[in-house]
Amino acid sequence: MSTVKKFMYVNRHAPYGSIYALEGLEVVLIGAAFDQDCCMAFIDDGVFQLVKGQDSSASGMKNFSPTYRALGDYEVTRLYVEKESLMERGLTKSDLMELTYEDEDDDWAEKPSIQIVERSELGRLMEEQDVLLNF
């Protein structure tokens, strides 16, 4: 499979209330092994996936939020978080986990994976993709 396609994983669901976020993350991690050009978008309730301080122990559910920290190691380095979705939910960037990756083209400098983008920009980014998968 030599073709490189642009994949965008669109996340619009909050974690825990449904399994979409967790199983979506599993797709992203497997997809990373295929050397495609991939990014993630967090829109609507999807932004809640990245909120820091998640502790699911008392709910008896698996806390999968640490997995987002591993994305950089899988070369998933672009996480587009929609500015308006954050604002509508009373959140700011400081409420989100600090996610980073090491940039191999820049002497492995540590860089932030999360990019806050406006809704209009996200619409344009979607038009650049080949495959859009929704979770």
């Binding site: 295929f34 495959v131 998968l133």
Partner: peptide, 14 residues
Amino acid sequence: LGQLIEAGVKSDRL
């Protein structure tokens, strides 16, 4: 799950 990614790569539309 690799079968899903492969479907995305090998198909014109998923």
